[in-house]
Design a protein around this nucleic acid. Sequence first.
DNA 1: TTACATTAAATGTATGTACATATATTTGCA
DNA 2: TGCAAATATATGTACATACATTTAATGTAA
Lengths: 150, 150
Amino acid sequence: MMKIEDEIQQPTFKSSHQKALINLVFTANWLGLRQACAFRPFGITLPQFNVLRILRGQHPKPATVNLLIERMLDKTSNASRIVDKLEAKALVTRTTCPSNRRAVDIRITEAGLELLRRLDVEVDSERGPLQNLTPDEAAQLSALLDKIRD
Amino acid sequence: MMKIEDEIQQPTFKSSHQKALINLVFTANWLGLRQACAFRPFGITLPQFNVLRILRGQHPKPATVNLLIERMLDKTSNASRIVDKLEAKALVTRTTCPSNRRAVDIRITEAGLELLRRLDVEVDSERGPLQNLTPDEAAQLSALLDKIRD
DNA sequence: TTACATTAAATGTATGTACATATATTTGCA
DNA sequence: TGCAAATATATGTACATACATTTAATGTAA
C-alpha cells in the first residue's frame, strides 16, 4: 500500500484539502502513464485513442473538428493536429464537407475500427484501471469529483 | 451542478468504473486549467511553480536536479528544462556543485522567494481549489485515490 | 451586391511530457 | 594505474497542450 505521502516523499500536508488535491493530480498522471503504456504497442497515444472512439460513436456518420472538440475531455487541445496524426496512419479520412466547405468531414476507416476492436480487449478487461475499487466506491469517487467542480 | 455526463455530452457510461475514470481525468485537467489561469498574470506555469516551491523548501540549501525529480509529482518530466526557464527569469541560480562536478546546485533567488510570497496569497486562499469539499470529504477522496494505486 | 462580422479549421509559438541517447564526472575493481 | 560501470545532467525527437493568429467560407445587413 503506497500512500501519497510516500509517493512524493512529503511527510505531512497543510490540510486534508491540500493532500487530496496533490493526490488527485498525482493519481490522474499515474493512470495516464499506465494507459499510455498499454497503447504504445499499438502505435497510438491516449488522445488519439479518445478521438478514434468519438469517431466510432458517430460511425458511419462523419464528425467535424468542432464536434471532436466538444466531446473531448480536454476542450482546448488541438483536435486538428491529432486528426493529422490519425490521417497519416490511415485510421481516419478527411474530406471537405459538401454542404459547408469551411467544415471537414472526418470518418474512421475500417483499419481504425479494427484497431479499436483490438484495443477494446485490452482497455475494457475487468473493471479497467480502477479495478481496486468496488462499484460503490467508484460511484462515491464520481460524486466527490462532481462536487469539486460545482 | 454540472455532472460529468453533461460536461462531455455522453449520456451513459458502461459502468460506474468507467464513469469514475473519465471523471477523474476530466477533473484533474479542469483543476490544472484553473491553476494555470491563476499563474498566468505572474508569468509562470504550474510545473515551474512546483519546482520553485521545492526550492523554497530547501532554502537556503541548494537542490540538485535529482532532488527535484524525486519530489516532483511527475517523475518523468524534464526538470532540466523547467530550471532553464526559471533561470532565464532570474528566479533561480545554477552553479556546478563544488563537491561533485557532475551535479548542479540550484537555488531560489530573492526574486523567486518574493514571487512565491505573492502567489501564496492567491493559491492558499481558503481551502484552495477543493473548497467545495468538507475536510471529511477531502479525506475520503484521498483514501479512494490511494486505493486505486494499490 | 458590397462590407463587415461570424464561423470552421489550420497554423504559429511557447511550454511541457515521455523517452532515448549523449557527455562529463566519479566510483570501484581488476 | 587504468578501465568499465555507475551517476548527474543535458540534449534530441515526437507528441500534446494552451492560446493567439491566420485563412477561407458563410451569413447578414446596409
